[in-house]
Design a binder for these strands. Structure first.
Lengths: 109, 109
DNA sequence: TTGTTTCATTGCAATATTACGATAATAATT
DNA sequence: AATTATTATCGTAATATTGCAATGAAACAA
């Protein structure tokens, strides 16, 4: 098959999985960490930062954008990418809530 | 190719990506949320909870275990799975730190 | 207009993932 | 020993992902 059965899971489960899947690759983690490090927005110098060819970086950026992790704004002939605060807040509160739930319960096994 | 160039990224970047990749599937999110919901550890009734066949669930459990998200303890002929607190704490602090960094900086674009 | 810069898209090959039926393996039960 | 319960593994098919060379598109500069 190879086809995820998304229709059997809740909207939130799919949303969470989509966001985390987008971050589930070291190159995309590196891109996000780079975007976090540079104070202002950047665009194509992500290519200079990573050991990957330009089309590969472009594809990773597309996936991050589709998932909602980053935003891209056109500025002349360059494109300015930046992190989407909302998405990261969503993930952060997801794990925050999860941990408070865990701490309420006894450890098992 | 289809082969991730992990050797070009840092150990932490690879670790983070591995953890998030394991959670990047709605079935595995559902498994984790189920493990969070049931007070004590469970084993094979995850199969009854999800709309997936037993081998598929077993495979997802294996991936979660390999990534370090869950632990499995043998109890007689059953296996008791439970969440690995440490892994979730790692992820939580990763995004916590990221957000505090974001809040320090001005929004772009 | 011609070139330059910047980025996306196409097309392809190699590999990974997802899902399941069938089967095996292990431990308790009868 | 035979049965049952529980879970893992194997094998296979369909699809997705990763990566890059080549090419295209859009904006700017000369």
């Amino acid at each position: 098959m190879g086809l995820t059965k998304s229709e059997f899971f809740t909207e939130n489960q799919n949303k969470t999985a989509t966001l985390l899947k987008a971050l589930g690759h070291p190159a995309r983690i590196a891109i996000v960490e780079y975007l976090l490090r540079v104070k202002t927005c950047i665009c194509g110098d992500i290519v200079n930062e990573l050991p990957l060819a330009q089309p590969t970086v472009s594809q990773h950026l597309k996936e991050l954008k589709n998932a909602g992790i980053i935003k891209g704004n056109i500025e002349g002939n360059a494109i300015c990418y930046c992190l989407d605060e909302g998405a990261l807040e969503y993930i952060n509160s997801y794990f925050g809530n999860m941990l408070t739930e865990i701490y309420k319960k006894s450890t098992c096994c």
